[in-house]
Design a protein around this nucleic acid. Structure first.
Length: 383
DNA sequence: AACCCGGGGAC
DNA sequence: GTCCCAGGGTT
């Protein structure tokens, strides 16, 4: 739905009276309707920090179990800092956006080394930590340090876009520049009220002012909402359309060391980039006019420097990432000759199926492991 | 400003 | 299928 008029760059200022009313009604609504979530029961900076990182681009229900398991495994900042990265990524396995885990780990080490193991209380120190931007720092300051700071996440952007009928695309940086002062203007000065307010703002977006079918009938801001007044709640926020995502065919080797098929070669992906620091079955993209078995043999030669025999196709796995889709074509393979070298990875390792559970794998690779474990006959299908 | 970075839930 | 989610980092 394209707007015939240019996006509104300026907003009608909110009077002190309206701001006061918005604060009161939202906090009252939250007290009656807010969910009880684990990270709302604590004000420990470490626990709040962890929750905010896990919740980046990730829905509440997905996070809850990871949050509990992570805190049980790493109960303090120093215990996290002292742990090997592999252990941290194993706890994060399946949650996605693994740079969050790597940055969390780095930040814990910075806190251990530069802040005596105590989470910093100065906002500038918090936002300087890797993985913590303006909004996450604002949330931690508000929720754990009793220092009211504005926040601006996906929920807040949607709520504000409707409240003020902002029709600028919600993804654009210029829109955030309009919204940050608004989030700050609405935030109460009192630390306890600010805690309630920022929690409530996100709760409203998550449970009431939802992307589709917002439930305006039970919204505490209905009387003030400019989108509702103009019946635009279904049109706002405006979103720019996403480009169609490309698709890749990936040849993947389940590469056994010998005919006993006890040990299989796995590779540690580079530290940065997609799935950085996770283990995987080696392989790579098929080139134009290349057969899949030829692709597997070529990739293994290029990335590991060994010759293999490519056997039967074990399975096909389709997986969707945000910006592309892949089909993993998984082949049963046997080592032939050469010395394995980690040319395109950080390390290589021969492991048994049972040992694999100690390593962190991406979701699509874990589906291969599940298949191998559930169907041992598949290990014996080499042509 | 544009691009990169996972996986899952809601529709 | 589509879209987005308690975003941040890099270039």
């Amino acid at each position: 739905m394209k707007s015939p008029s240019p996006p509104n760059k300026t907003l009608t200022p909110l009077s002190a009276k309206v701001v006061q009313s918005l604060r009161q009604s939202l906090i009252a609504w939250f007290k009656a309707n807010g969910r009880s979530l684990p990270w709302r029961e604590t004000r420990q900076p470490y626990a709040v920090w962890l929750s905010e990182i896990m919740l980046q681009q990730t829905q509440v229900n997905t996070v809850v179990d990871y949050y509990h398991r992570f805190l049980a495994r790493f109960p303090s900042i120093v215990s996290l800092a002292d742990a090997p990265q592999a252990d941290v990524l194993k706890q994060w396995e399946g949650l996605g956006y693994y740079s969050r885990a790597r940055n969390l780990h780095k930040a814990a080490q910075l806190i251990r080394d530069r802040h005596h193991g105590v989470f910093p209380t100065q906002f500038d120190d918090i936002v300087a930590l890797p993985g913590i931007g303006q909004s996450t720092a604002g949330a931690i300051a508000t929720f754990a340090l009793m220092q009211p700071r504005p926040i601006l996440d996906g929920n807040v952007k949607r709520v504000l876009a409707r409240l003020m009928a902002i029709d600028a695309p919600i993804q654009e940086a210029t829109t955030a520049k309009i919204m940050w002062p608004l989030s700050a203007r609405l935030l109460p000065d009192d630390p306890e009220a600010a805690w309630q307010f920022n929690q409530a703002l996100m709760e409203l977006g998550a449970t009431c002012c939802t992307l589709k079918n917002p439930d305006c009938s039970r919204c505490p801001w209905q009387k003030t909402c400019q989108a509702y007044a103009r019946n635009l709640q279904g049109e706002l926020p405006v979103s720019v359309k996403r480009k169609p995502v490309p698709h890749h065919d990936i040849g993947v080797a389940v590469l056994w060391k010998d005919e006993t098929r006890q040990q299989c070669l796995i590779a540690l992906r580079p530290q940065d980039g997609l799935l950085g620091g996770l283990w995987e079955f080696p392989g790579g993209k098929r080139e134009a006019d290349e057969t899949l078995p030829a692709c597997v043999a070529r990739e293994i030669m290029e990335e590991i420097g060994i010759e293999i025999a490519v056997g039967a196709k074990l399975t096909e796995i389709k997986h969707a990432y945000t910006h592309f889709k892949v089909t993993l074509h998984v082949y049963d393979c046997l080592y032939v000759s050469g010395i394995p070298q980690p040319k395109a990875s950080q390390a290589l390792q021969w492991v048994t199926l049972d040992e694999m559970s100690a390593y962190a794998f991406p979701k699509a690779n874990n589906r291969i492991i599940d298949l191998l474990k559930s169907n041992p006959a598949m290990q014996l299908t080499l042509c």
